[in-house]
């Protein structure tokens, strides 16, 4: 187990603009984490920092259980828009396993297995790029499944899918969770977060404002911005600005 994952004072900036600010948290083995927040809150950046696709400008991302092992080997990520190689469905899964160094003989069975679990077996020999977006996302999940990661990051996996495809993808995520993979996922969809989440992290403008059990977060969120976000107030972030006007921080008055 590479978990728990500790994010220690992590900031990330591009061109002097701080996009993730002093983020601290620990992800333990077990619960499924849903990361919520508006566009630009830093949800996707947070996932990429955890997964190691980008390096924090300051602070550390620590896989406490890695013990000398490369933590990247025990993770996988599914992106909002799946990227498929120009080869067959089965070959796409096979390629991922080959990169992890699995022997050819074992790969056959693993590919079969992953395609079976995601309902793609009948499409195994089809070129991956001509699948529908929903099928491609299933294939992305099959590819992640085949890797049997300890942690799976999902970046808005259903953002461009219709309800039927969303349902199918959620079922696969449930199955991957049941097989023992730790799910960390961003979503826009509060209903989805309710359906899939055990734990919620609420991000706003690069800051982690609340991390709580899902039940508790949805019934009585502590942070006032989170309250407004859950109520679906369209200009909910202005509450923060109004607060600032009423009680300006001390440095600004000088």
């Amino acid at each position: 187990m590479i978990l728990p994952l500790t994010i220690q004072d992590v900031s990330f900036e591009i061109g002097g603009i701080r996009l993730i600010k002093d983020l601290n948290c620990t992800l333990e083995a077990g619960p499924r984490t849903m990361i919520l927040g508006a566009n630009g809150a830093g949800k996707s950046l947070f996932l990429r920092l955890c997964h190691g696709l980008i390096r924090p400008t300051t602070g550390r991302v620590l896989w406490q259980g890695a013990k000398g092992r490369d933590p990247a080997d025990a993770q996988a990520m599914v992106f909002q828009r799946p990227v498929m190689l120009r080869r067959s469905v089965a070959a796409n899964v096979d390629y991922a396993l080959k990169l992890r160094g699995m022997a050819a003989a074992e790969r056959r069975a693993a590919v079969e297995d992953a395609l079976g679990h995601t309902g793609l077996r009948r499409l195994a020999d089809n070129p991956a790029r001509v699948l529908s977006v929903g099928e491609q996302q299933k294939l992305a999940l099959a590819r992640a499944w085949a890797l049997q990661p300890e942690v799976l990051f999902l970046d808005e996996p259903t953002a461009s899918l219709d309800p039927a495809a969303t349902h199918a993808v959620e079922q696969i995520i449930n199955a991957i969770d049941a097989a023992g993979t730790r799910i960390v996922m961003t979503t826009h969809d509060l209903g989805q977060a309710r359906r899939l989440g055990d734990e919620v992290m609420f991000l706003n403008r690069g800051r982690l404002l609340e991390k709580a059990l899902a039940e508790r977060f949805f019934s009585e969120p502590e942070n006032d911005l989170a309250q407004a976000f859950l109520k679906g107030e369209l200009l909910w972030w202005q509450r923060g600005r109004d607060n600032l006007k009423r009680n300006p921080p001390k440095q600004r008055r000088q």
Binding site: L53, A72, A76, F79, P82, V83, L85, L99, R100
Partner: peptide, 16 residues
């Protein structure tokens, strides 16, 4: 540009 994140996520740096 299109593949980088996916390939790096799968464990393939530029060389591979």
């Amino acid at each position: 540009v299109e593949y980088e994140e996916q390939l790096r996520s799968l464990g393939a740096g530029p060389g591979r």
